[in-house]
């Protein structure tokens, strides 16, 4: 906080004295670094946090609204510079395609781990004894069924575009369930909200970090743990004839960006590479914003005040 206050008063002084140009620390280029904003809170937090830190280091930063996948068009050409959250679980294909061109680079993990898995609200434990073990699922298929899927249980999957191999999993593990895909994650959580209000049965795909983890009480289904071999080798696991007889992989959330960043703003590239934050920290911040209705800026300012040493380390020369 002190540094910040100092810096801003220095800036004000510089302006008052009519001194144009970079007021704070000397940086490689004064051009704005463009960070992309998407439409989920966690990403707004990471991005705004990174932006604030870069500004502390003296860089000029611009935040630009952009679509999660479509942004690669801009990252390749250098119209956009940094995307702070590219999930292993959903962005891999686009990311690989982009990095293969050499115009986009991976700035390394954010430290957060993406979890995507079958999930149920806690109240379902009473209706389906034996949860969270996946073996209990077939016994309570009835409990998770709807008129359309009965007698099979209903599993609400993510948008098809997210992949996830749920059809394969259902078949490999012999689950008596039908996979229904939501079109977007808004639809996905709308169903959860609806079921939760009625304390009605629901079994669905949930991912974290996400505010749902704070708002709803629930648990992940425990499938046989993921190993790379499970997805490639049919012989692996309980079902000797099928792949995907296991849980989903968990994976890092990456930072990616325009390849030119390292040349134009080497210090910023270093700071971006150094940025890390944990799932727990992130969950707390998301909840304060989405559930308690606090302002994003205030939440970020708090974090920065409490973790000054951490972010100072990112921008240390």
């Amino acid at each position: 906080m002190t540094t910040k206050a100092l810096l801003s008063s220095a800036a004000a002084l510089a302006l008052a004295l009519g001194l144009a140009g970079p007021a704070a620390a000397q940086v490689e280029s004064d051009d704005p670094i463009r960070l992309t904003l998407h439409d989920w809170t966690g990403q707004l937090v990471t991005t705004n946090l990174m932006a604030r830190v870069l500004e502390e280091a003296g860089y000029t930063v611009e935040l630009v609204q952009a679509d999660y996948i479509a942004q690669f068009a801009g990252l390749k050409t250098g119209d956009l510079h940094v995307a702070m959250e590219m999930w292993e679980t959903t962005g891999r294909q686009a990311m690989d395609e982009a990095t293969a061109t050499g115009q986009v680079v991976n700035f390394g993990p954010t430290g957060m781990e993406a979890v995507e898995e079958w999930w149920y609200p806690s109240y379902m434990k009473e209706k389906c004894l034996g949860l969270p073990d996946w073996k209990a699922l077939n016994d309570c298929a009835e409990a998770f069924a709807t008129a359309e899927t009965a007698p099979k249980g209903r599993y609400l999957g993510a948008p098809v575009t997210w992949g996830g191999f749920d059809e394969e999993r259902v078949e490999a593990l012999g689950l008596n369930y039908e996979v229904i895909h939501a079109g977007t994650d808004a639809a996905l959580f709308a169903e959860l909200e609806s079921a939760y209000q009625r304390q009605a049965p629901i079994l669905m795909w949930v991912y974290a970090p996400h505010w749902s983890q704070t708002k709803y009480e629930g648990e992940w289904i425990e499938f046989p743990p993921y190993e790379a071999a499970c997805y490639e080798d049919p012989a692996w696991g309980i079902n000797p004839n099928k792949t995907h007889d296991c849980a989903k992989p968990r994976g890092p959330i990456w930072k990616v960006g325009w390849a030119g960043v390292a040349n134009k703003w080497p210090g910023a590239a270093k700071a971006i590479g150094a940025f890390t934050i944990s799932n727990a920290e992130m969950d707390r911040m998301i909840a304060r914003i989405d559930l308690d209705g606090e302002q994003l800026d205030a939440v970020i300012a708090d974090w920065m005040a409490q973790n000054e040493a951490v972010w100072q380390g990112w921008i240390a020369k």
């Binding site: 479509a70 079109g183 977007t184």
Partner: peptide
Amino acid sequence: TALVGTRDLGQEVYIALTRA
């Protein structure tokens, strides 16, 4: 409609967008 999970041409357009 693709956003609520139908399997029509709209969905194809949407999938194509998310895959660029």
